[in-house]
């Protein structure tokens, strides 16, 4: 058994060293922190399939139930919903490269008659312990244009 012990001991040591120096993750080593921080507000993403860009509340932050009947099914377009959610919720600096990265993920140039509104969705507990979910429009993509939400980004 001594060889077994030695291997387990060494791998365990490497495990501890790697996870402690890499924020708990060095695949496959992990502290498995999924769902460890309970009660924190979260941020995800959806894509709204827009029919009318002239409507008054297009760029307003609104409750998710105002748009949940026209959400684009990302799986039909081969887009991984978690990747998209991470991209739109974790990107802080929306420079040209980041926005083009999103366009490239959508490959919207292949859908000339479509208008897709990339939307960040945030959820939190209210003081009355209910869940509030809000949709924040970010960018409107068409085959040849990208329009930023004027309420969030300066017009330059």
């Amino acid at each position: 058994m001594s060889t077994h012990k030695r291997i387990i001991g060494i791998v365990l040591l490497i495990n501890i060293l790697l996870v402690s120096t890499h924020r708990g993750e060095f695949w496959p080593f992990s502290i498995f922190p999924m769902f460890s921080q309970a009660g924190n507000p979260w941020s995800r993403g959806v894509v709204e399939n827009v029919q009318d860009t002239t409507r008054a509340n297009l760029w307003e932050t609104k409750s998710i139930d105002k748009i949940d009947n026209r959400i684009l099914a990302l799986e039909k377009y081969g887009i991984h919903e978690i990747d998209y959610a991470n991209y739109i919720s974790k990107t802080k600096d929306w420079n040209t490269k980041k926005i083009n990265g999103l366009r490239s993920t959508f490959q919207i140039a292949d859908y000339p008659d479509q208008m897709w509104l990339a939307t960040r969705v945030v959820g939190s507990l209210t003081e009355k312990d209910s869940v509030e979910i809000k949709a924040i429009p970010m960018f409107l993509f068409t085959a040849d244009t990208t329009i930023k939400n004027p309420n969030l980004f300066s017009q330059n």
Partner: peptide
């Protein structure tokens, strides 16, 4: 990360809301 209050029910509500958005986005 959270302490002994981790299993408190409202935390599950928040996660169910979060995952509902992932499924909505996917399908």
């Amino acid at each position: 990360a959270t302490g002994i209050t981790w299993p408190s029910g409202e935390h599950l509500w928040l996660w169910m809301g979060e995952k509902s958005i992932d499924i909505l986005s996917k399908t």
